[in-house]
Design a protein around this nucleic acid. Structure first.
Lengths: 168, 168
DNA sequence: ATACTCATGTAAGCTGTTACATGATTCT
DNA sequence: AGAATCATGTAACAGCTTACATGAGTAT
């Protein structure tokens, strides 16, 4: 983030929340201690640059930091891909509930992903020039959540049809 | 899991690893302490049923446990959906590296999701009768990872074409 | 014999969230 | 005057992983 010109912990937090949040979130409780650790490790340096009487520390990469970044950029054979999906967990166990509950659960999932999709689409519209990396990540997110919404729609229809068969 | 007939901590771990793992993982370090806590809360009871000289505790739901489960099954308005995607993070920052590195990164991502897809497909083939909930979760996983693989393929092609333009 | 599976559990540590505390500056 | 934003930071806790320890039963 510092390499992209984000100077302060606050900057980084703002940027994470409007960019990587959907595939890699971060909180102040992570960011500030991490800046301290990166400083101690000699990968970044911080200068105090207050705005008036307001404390403010701006960071830059050191040579060692740039080298570490270059190394990190190299793809690894088995990158972390972890998901925690509460809606899917409830769907998995939905045989223990009612049919109607299962349908409502999928609807709730769909609405959740529709909200995320709307956020990402807004982001896409609002952003003017955007570097290739962030643009690919954004397009990926839109595709992913659209795909999930479509899956929910299709499944809702299927379950509704099966219900109609039962009634008829 | 106990409601689905998984009796021991070991059982639960095995089952998680072949079913919910891709959207909700769990380790022994979570499972055994959680069984103790659920027992203390009066939601489950455990009986010692050794197999020969091998210690073994089988669990069942109490009435309170069944009630808690029924309540949990009800969908919540904003269910957790969290992703940690290291490949996407590297792609996001890929403007700081080389074009060739970016392409290799997407390829690595694709291979990672192809492996997951293969696992899920095998699971689908091998499983005979499977309840609706788990079946929907499995189909979702297959759709999701296939979608990601296709996105990677399309993006790899696009980046390769752009590279060809530059060279020509 | 040997390896694998069944089975239980914990200690140490890492990662990360939530909530709070603090206070200056800027916008309305 | 009051609200929003800029800015830094921590304490307590929640959640989870990794690695280890232990040992019986079962298949090759």
């Amino acid at each position: 983030m510092i390499a992209l010109g984000k100077q302060t912990g606050y900057d980084i937090k703002q940027f994470v929340d409007e960019s990587t949040r959907h595939f890699w979130a971060a909180s102040y409780g992570q960011i500030y201690p991490e800046l301290r650790r990166l400083g101690e490790a000699g990968l970044i340096t911080g200068q105090s640059e207050p705005t008036g009487g307001r404390a403010r520390t701006v960071y830059q990469l050191t040579d060692a930091g740039r080298a570490a970044l270059t190394e990190w950029l190299e793809p690894e054979p088995d990158p972390t891909f972890e998901v925690r999906d509460e809606g899917m967990l409830k769907l998995f166990f939905s045989d223990l509930g009612t049919r109607e509950q299962r349908i409502r659960n999928i609807r709730t999932m769909r609405e959740r992903h529709e909200r995320t999709l709307a956020q990402l689409s807004t982001l896409e519209q609002e952003s003017g020039h955007i570097p290739e990396g962030p643009r690919l990540a954004l397009e990926f997110g839109i595709d992913l959540h659209r795909g999930i919404v479509e899956w929910c729609e299709a499944t809702e229809r299927r379950l509704a049809d099966e219900g109609a068969d039962d009634a008829g």
